[in-house]
Design a protein around this nucleic acid. Structure first.
Length: 420
RNA sequence: GUGGGUGUAGCUCAGCUGGCAGAGCACUGGGUUGUGAUCCCAGGUGUCGCGGGUUCAAGUCCCGUCACUCACCCCA
């Protein structure tokens, strides 16, 4: 019989790593919650046109990387490649922007891109994101960045840096783009790079090849061509970040792959990860909501990579979450003992104690081994002798110390031993 | 889409100029008829990715193919 494997480029998370995966996701969401972001749960597929119009037809994400299919009603559907467009769709559809602004929302979930997989790059990946919509206040840009930074720090991560720049706005970016294109047109670039210069000239600035970088040392930079408004905005964001104690490095050649970004853009980069080193990124988007048929409101947000943050934790020797899968483990000797321990499971679990026991008629040795492997602090050992005496043996596995407690009062004894 | 690397036990991997398919971990049992993690002993697991070729003989050499992986590209 042939077997199956997961589709290409899709990670499975199972114990014990899955405990860290959950902890990473929860820690990042909690950072947003602490800043007043409300949770929003959205579908993983949307109308294809939402992404085409929101993210931009010319982006690689839309033109080459979307999972798009026709549903049974003949509609073109796409598995979401990013989170912001869907949030904007929901904000507009449900009029969430009609109350007091900003609207602050957080989400967590799967995203899909049909790329060639490699270390840290998956076809299904997980992001935690926030969007703060409706107020163009540089303090909010700084808050969004600070929330991401707080999330990463709460995981214990230290080996990352924050890169920051401004992409300008509708009044200055088009002119800059032409200036840059004129500059690039004079350079001896290969055909593929030349084509890139046509579609997204900013991306050329980010080229990794030293020989190309050398040609670009005198290239005009967006930060030197900002409108007065964007310049002031950028300066204020940096001021607020200093107030918040968030360290950053300016990278005027940073590129984002999504068309909607304006003004503030940022990226968190970890250096223990290989080529796919971005663990999070985001920025402000002035025109997106209007582009999607809503009010002309600006927003700012981020997407943080849960998979990559987990890899970063592993690279730093961190294992967030509880590796133990239970607190107390039952070791029954014989059928009578098993039924007593099975009966204890419900009250123990109801009291919040994670309880498991040895199933399958294991011997004492095997059951004790199960207790050890489960990570439990205590084992409850019960045999015929104990039942006759009305007691159960409560053994602390780390020390090996064992005490007898009354079987009828086992739940309270366990709670006391756990210090609860 | 384009390159490089790797496919051997559940996992991590060794296997030399071709000569009986291996280790550690994990799992099961025993040493200890009621005590795990440590220690000792025993046990089983394989279409050596798949197909073809060379050879007395292929995990090993050759050709093809598939998969995985890293990198370019792109990005979380």
């Amino acid at each position: 019989m042939s077997t199956f494997s997961a589709p290409k480029g899709v990670p499975d998370y199972f114990p014990p790593v899955s405990a860290s995966f959950l902890a990473v996701r929860e820690t990042l969401v909690q950072a947003a919650r602490l800043a007043g972001y409300g949770y929003i749960e959205l579908p993983v597929f949307e109308d294809t046109a939402l992404f085409a119009r929101g993210v931009g037809e010319s982006t690689d994400v839309v033109s080459k990387e979307m999972y798009t299919f026709t549903d049974r009603g003949g509609r073109s559907i796409t598995l979401r490649p990013e989170g912001t467009a869907g949030v904007m769709r929901a904000v507009i559809e449900h009029g969430l922007d009609r109350g007091q602004l900003p609207v602050k929302l957080a989400y967590a979930g799967q995203f899909f891109r049909a790329e060639q997989p490699q270390a840290g790059r998956y076809r299904q990946f997980h992001q935690v994101g926030v969007e703060a919509v409706g107020v163009d206040d540089p303090a909010l840009d700084a808050e969004v960045i600070a929330v991401a930074d707080a999330g990463f720090r709460a995981l214990g991560l230290t080996g990352y840096r924050l890169e920051l720049t401004s992409l300008g706005d509708a009044t200055c970016r088009p002119q800059y783009r032409e200036t840059l294109q004129a500059f690039l047109a004079k350079l001896p670039l290969d055909e593929e790079t030349r084509r890139r210069a046509e579609i997204n000239p900013l991306r050329v600035l980010d080229d990794k090849r030293p020989e190309v970088r050398a040609l670009l040392t005198d290239a005009p930079l967006m930060v030197d061509h900002l409108s007065a408004e964007s310049r002031a905005h950028y300066e204020q964001v940096k001021g607020y970040l200093n107030d918040l104690g968030v360290k950053f490095a300016e990278n005027p050649r940073m590129v984002r792959g999504l068309d909607y970004y304006t003004k503030t853009t940022f990226e968190f980069v970890h250096d223990g990860l290989g080529a796919q080193s971005g663990i999070g990124g985001g920025g402000r988007y002035d025109g997106l909501m209007e582009q999607l048929g809503g009010q002309p409101l600006s927003g700012v947000g981020f997407g943080l990579g849960v998979d990559r943050a987990l890899l970063a934790c592993q690279a730093e020797g961190l294992a967030p979450g509880d590796v133990a899968r239970c607190d107390v483990y039952g070791v029954p000797l014989g059928e009578a003992a098993k039924s007593r321990l099975v009966a204890l499971a419900a009250p123990l679990r109801a009291a919040g104690v994670r309880f498991d026991l040895a199933y399958g008629g294991k011997g004492l040795k095997g059951a004790m081994k199960g207790a050890d492997r489960s990570g439990a602090r205590f084992a409850l050992v019960l045999g015929e002798r104990d039942i006759e005496a009305g007691v159960v043996q409560l053994k602390e596995l780390s020390s090996g110390e064992q005490v007898q407690v009354p079987l009828a009062d086992a739940v309270n004894s366990v709670l006391g031993a756990l210090g609860r």
